[in-house]
């Protein structure tokens, strides 16, 4: 159940150029890869959503949520200015999660023996947490990530592509690794290509989308995307909110525009 929670900053550090890792305490017992938190920024109307890049559940208030972000605007600038012990006001857990081998909000899938994870830029954040959980749950996985240059590269991948596109030699990797499913997060253009690639190779894909959000819980309809209406054949297209119906969508349901 989502809640409005308070935590304390445990650690804040630069992990790459203009890229910050923020860790804060939480009383949450579970939050899954793909889900996000929405952090209050003083004097800002809208909270800022961040994918969970890591999570450790502990007793009482001692769990740890990790988020990663690029310095972009006033919100991220404020977060970077926080010091150890400062308070964080956040909504969590928000959104759905990637399909996981067991537990999680989505139905478990049998065909989840091997997973290829593709993170483009800061899109690596949820991939890192997903990789950890897949590994814990004995699913063979391979994380490939791509960054503009060496300085911006975040560690933790099995292969890191610097410059060019993370998808440049991806077909070779697919042929070699033979995944059952592709998970990805990154800019829309990359996610669209990932979905096309999956379709071409007859693979399932799940992508975590991003959009400016207001409420974060599906009521304001500010962050909708177009998806195929799987349940209702009569109407082919429907809106889905990235914050509540997503952020994770099956590659086959997203309508790219």
């Amino acid at each position: 159940m989502k809640k409005n929670l308070k935590g304390k900053v445990l650690n804040i550090e630069n992990v790459a150029k203009d890229t910050v890792k923020l860790q804060f305490s939480t009383s949450l017992k579970e939050i899954y890869p793909g889900q996000f938190v929405s952090i209050l920024i003083p004097n800002k109307t809208l909270r800022r959503p961040f994918s969970v890049a890591d999570f450790e559940a502990h007793s009482s208030e001692n769990g740890i949520i990790t988020v990663l972000f690029k310095l972009k605007g006033e919100g991220t600038k404020y977060l970077k200015s926080l010091k150890k012990g400062d308070s964080i006001d956040y909504l969590a857990p928000l959104g759905n999660c990637f399909t996981l081998p067991e537990a999680g909000k989505r139905a478990p899938q049998k065909a989840l023996q091997k997973a290829l994870l593709i993170g483009a830029g800061i899109g690596i954040a949820p991939m890192l947490y997903l990789k950890k959980v897949l590994t814990e749950r004995d699913t063979e996985n391979f994380l490939i990530s791509g960054f503009k240059d060496e300085e911006e590269a975040v560690k933790g991948s099995d292969r890191t592509v610097i410059g060019g596109s993370v998808l440049d030699n991806i077909q070779n990797l697919l042929d070699e690794f033979k995944p059952d499913i592709i998970y990805s997060c990154g800019p829309k253009i990359v996610l669209e290509l990932v979905c096309k690639l999956a379709e071409k190779n007859g693979l399932r894909a799940e992508v975590a989308m991003e959009k400016v959000m207001a409420c974060g819980i599906g009521v304001c309809r500010g962050c909708v995307i177009k998806v195929k209406d799987m349940e209702n054949g009569a109407r082919l297209v429907k809106n889905a909110s990235v914050c509540a119906d997503g952020p994770v969508f099956a590659g086959s349901e997203v309508i790219w525009e």
Partner: peptide, 17 residues
Amino acid sequence: KRIFECTAGMINRIGLE
């Protein structure tokens, strides 16, 4: 685009979904 944050507020153009 349906949401735009501005100083001390926001602009929405949801369009009555």
